[in-house]
Design a binder for these strands. Structure first.
Lengths: 147, 147
DNA sequence: ACTGGATGAAACTATATTAGTTACAGAGGG
DNA sequence: CCCTCTGTAACTAATATAGTTTCATCCAGT
């Protein structure tokens, strides 16, 4: 995962949660306008979210996307899980020297540490929902309109 | 930070902790052999670790590197802090649409969330030291020699 | 059926990031 | 003064990321 994909995914979901209040769907093009990027990029992220059953696509007239569940029932942990392509920390790019005791033993140890760190990350992310994100975002953007 | 820099930094420190037991220093070339990469790359990481006072360099005859402190007094949190160039999650690459309430308000909210996540990460990483890492690595590598 | 607006995915380009390499001045103990 | 290693810049190569174009596919509405 590029480290911006998670941000884009959250932006998409918050934007969808906004229109969900009016029971409407939204197109990748509309989302792209909000994110300020191109629709294909958005669809690539949407495709990942769809595979994790966080969003649903509709075809035909009035086609577009909507949340698969209520926004207060989607946690950031699930979103991260859906988007994640690579772990937070990568191992060595090339295999370390197996004749060195460190080179030989370090990878499994780090793998274990890193998976532990990701678990901590998930429990933190699980405490926030898309509804929380939408709420705070709207609060902030309406405040800033007056500044 | 590339997501492998943290791994390389930990490899370096574990390797240095190993020679620290014999009160010796180690050169970037020796470390590079263990990591299986080139000395300049190692020196770039060492330079970051030095700025955070985790390692010390010696010049002249018998030159090389050593830990600035006992390995049981260096936590992975400090190492991560020393290495980190970018936050875990990046924001939008290009500024989101300021005419959209989501685009306008989302970045500060995410910034706050992300800094919270990093704090959780640090408390997790703070529980492990370089000495722990070295110990587990040696245990594992000696086990695997018999497999 | 046919239409129209949207998706899915592949292919390609452009840009940015990351790592590898070369080169050379600077440090300092012997 | 010598020797070995560091510090850093400059360059190249490889990879990752995002933007763009294109076109087949989907399906509600007519």
């Amino acid at each position: 995962m590029s480290n911006s994909h998670f941000t884009i995914a959250l932006h998409i979901l918050a934007r969808m949660a906004l229109v969900a209040e009016k029971n409407k769907v939204i197109t990748s093009k509309e989302i792209a306008t909000s994110v300020n990027t191109n629709p294909v990029f958005i669809r690539r992220i949407l495709s990942l979210l769809e595979k994790s059953n966080l969003v649903v696509v509709q075809y035909g007239t009035g086609s577009g996307w909507k949340l698969a569940r209520n926004p207060d029932n989607i946690t950031l942990s699930e979103v991260y899980q859906a988007i994640k392509q690579k772990p937070i920390f990568g191992l060595h790019r090339s295999i370390p020297n197996q004749n060195c005791p460190i080179g030989k033993g370090i990878q499994p140890v780090l793998k274990y540490y890193y998976s532990d760190v990701e678990k901590a990350l998930h429990s933190k992310l699980a405490k926030t929902t898309v509804a929380d994100l939408l709420g705070e975002t709207l609060t902030l953007s309406s405040q800033e309109l007056h500044s």
